[in-house]
């Protein structure tokens, strides 16, 4: 493909019959073992159960509301009430568990209104995340046929779900995983190396688990005090080291091959192109392609590289707010 080609894509997904998105799943609250109640995160539609505990059973109070727009998926002569049933699908990938909870007990047929029920989850049967998804499902065949869903058992309407977090989401799904390494193990870098990046495909920051003091700091979940303050600063410090390495790695790949090799490298270029991180290194309005080209050029040319590394350290420090974190640390911990 010639370099001067621009690509674009578009897509359209469609159901083969009338389908409506007017089913709303609401969570009004949840409580554990008939006692302590928790509060849902309404912004992200998440129930952070992992922040509570220990518990054996959680009861989640849900409501399913059928919007008037849902009427359009049924022919005029079918209702209201309509021959369908609202359900909440419970799905947990990790424990291979998937089932539907019928909402309310006197359905079908249904009016377009709000139904309430309680979804009970036994902790022993779930791990990780559980998805709750509302659906409206036909309970009889449709005499009119298309464009209406013709068979019973077909979903004719749905809506956004909620995520139930039974356990802490695994850290390394969100970022470059930072892991403790025992450097005394073979195939590990020498002890002198306090941190490093391993090669493709998973970039890792390594902290020696023998450094008890550092481990204490990094493991501290406290919100105030010496260690949490130091931890905030160390995170900025590690951030600088890591970003410098990631950018240089990406730059050398671009210099060698003309483009990025891995998704994360494209991500690094994207980060540089869209965040203030890149403004210190490139034109602030440089687009992705420009940043990629420039990055390759500055890393490729030894005379440019010297300046670039200096600029890069500055940019990474600004980006991670290194100075502010250090200032805060000194401010709070000075004797």
């Amino acid at each position: 493909m010639p370099a001067n080609t621009r690509r674009a894509s578009a897509a359209d997904e469609s159901m083969p019959y009338r389908y409506d998105d007017g089913v709303d799943l609401g969570v009004t609250g949840f409580s554990f073992d008939g006692g302590e109640a928790g509060s849902p995160d309404y912004d992200d539609r998440v129930l952070p159960l992992h922040e509570y505990g220990p518990w054996e059973v959680v009861e989640i109070d849900v409501s399913v509301t059928l919007d008037p727009s849902v009427a359009r998926v049924f022919p005029d002569d079918e209702g209201p009430p309509f021959p369908a049933e609202p359900v909440v699908v419970v799905d947990c990938e990790e424990t291979q568990t998937r089932y539907a909870v019928s909402v309310g007990d006197d359905h079908p047929p249904v009016e377009l209104e709000t139904f309430e029920t309680t979804v009970e989850l036994e902790r022993d049967l779930f791990r990780g995340t559980v998805r709750l998804t509302p659906r409206l499902v036909r309970t009889e065949p449709c005499a009119s046929g298309l464009p209406y869903a013709p068979n019973e058992g077909m979903r004719v309407a749905g809506g956004g779900g909620w995520t139930v977090r039974v356990d802490d989401p695994p850290e390394d799904h969100d970022g470059f995983p930072f892991v403790y390494r025992d450097f005394s193990q073979e195939s590990m870098p020498p002890v002198e190396l306090a941190h490093s990046l391993s090669r493709h495909p998973e970039e890792k920051m390594m902290i020696n688990d023998q450094h008890e003091g550092i481990v204490d700091v990094m493991q501290s979940g406290l919100t105030s005090g010496f260690r949490p303050n130091l931890k905030r600063f160390l995170k900025a410090d590690f951030g600088v080291m890591l970003w410098v390495q990631l950018v240089l790695w990406t730059g050398t790949t671009v210099a060698e091959t003309g483009t990025t090799e891995f998704d994360w490298q494209a991500g690094v270029v994207q980060e540089l192109a869209t965040h203030e991180f890149g403004d210190h290194l490139f034109d602030s309005d440089a687009d992705y392609d420009t940043v990629e080209r420039e990055l390759g050029r500055r890393v490729d040319d030894p005379s440019e590289l010297r300046d670039f590394v200096g600029d890069l350290f500055e940019a990474a420090q600004l980006y991670t707010e290194y100075g502010r974190q250090l200032e805060r640390f000194v401010d709070r911990e000075a004797p």
């Binding site: 969100d174 930072f178 403790y180 902290i207 493991q219 494209a266 991500g267 994207q270």
Partner: peptide
């Protein structure tokens, strides 16, 4: 803490960027 355990709360240090939009 043992070798191989991940360091908590470090995602914001260097998030995995999702490739190009």
């Amino acid at each position: 803490v043992e070798s191989g355990d991940s360091v908590p709360d470090m995602d914001d240090v260097a998030p995995v960027t999702e490739g190009r939009d």
